[in-house]
Amino acid sequence: MRPAALLDRLLPKPLSHVVVEEVAETPAQRRRRRRVVATTAVTGAGLLGTSLSTAPGSREFYLSTAAVAGVWCVGGVTSGPLHLGWIENRDATLRRPLLTPLATGVAAFGVFYAGALAARRVPVLADAVTRVLRFADEGEDARVLATTLANGVGEEIFFRGALYAALGTHRPVARSTVVYALATTTTRNPALVLAAGVMGTLFGLQRRASGGIQAPLITHTVWSALMLRFLPPLFRGRTAPGARRPARRAH
């Protein structure tokens, strides 16, 4: 096989690729999806703000973050059919998204890690990131990882699944990202809102290019796990404004 043909078989089409999704919903089904999506968005955003106002490592933190993940998942699943999607290679062959979104998650982490190195020099961003990372530093590793991944899965099921489908074909990437970022504003943390805007755009492009939630879901969970593992040490010497810094727990 010629090298060019081999590359076409291995490499996916770019994120600018648009999958034309065939929607077979009745007007009643569309109205129902939109009602469920609106209710879920408001409820989930409120709970998200509440979860990050609890004490790191507390029972309330784990319960509230689990509740947020549950709301996203239940709202997404009950809104209507969701699709996993396909990665289309340059030679038009199809495969389920796996390696490409995994590599994308690693690459996105690399970009954010470089950004975190720069953010340490910007007091506003450094303080915002430190406030978030307190939940990783002062919580139990296994529980924090579980709730982080659960919320990553739930967010993709809802925002790139149910919400994206409810928005129709008019600029769904931009509109779903705006809603995603707005939901994050309830945390009152500029670093999280910024991350939601950047990653929401990437996840939306993945949804548009694949026609489903599997690609953004894999990228989101890989990116989240790496951020949780490698970002806290960068900010461990700082103390979030208004917070006492206890000794790190042994896990």
Rank of each mutant, 00 (worst) to 15 (best):
E88P: 00
R33A: 12
M227P: 07
P216D: 01
G211I: 00
P12G: 08
A4N: 14
L10D: 04
R131L: 03
G154E: 03
D8S: 14
Y180E: 05
L52R: 06
W223F: 13
R34E: 10
L48Q: 10
A195W: 03
W86K: 05
Q29V: 07
V144R: 03
H220L: 10
L82F: 05
H220M: 07
R95P: 01
L6N: 12
L226R: 07
G237Y: 09
F159H: 03
R236M: 11
T221E: 12
V198P: 00
H251W: 10
C73K: 08
L125N: 01
P246N: 12
P12H: 02
E140P: 02
V36M: 12
E138D: 15
R143I: 01
G46C: 05
A69D: 01
P3D: 13
D8F: 07
T130Q: 09
R236V: 15
L99R: 06
L226M: 14
V173W: 02
E88A: 07
V42R: 09
M1W: 12
G242I: 03
T50E: 08
R175W: 06
N189D: 06
L82G: 09
R120P: 02
N89H: 15
T78R: 04
V129Q: 00
Q214L: 15
G211V: 04
T169E: 13
T26S: 15
E156K: 00
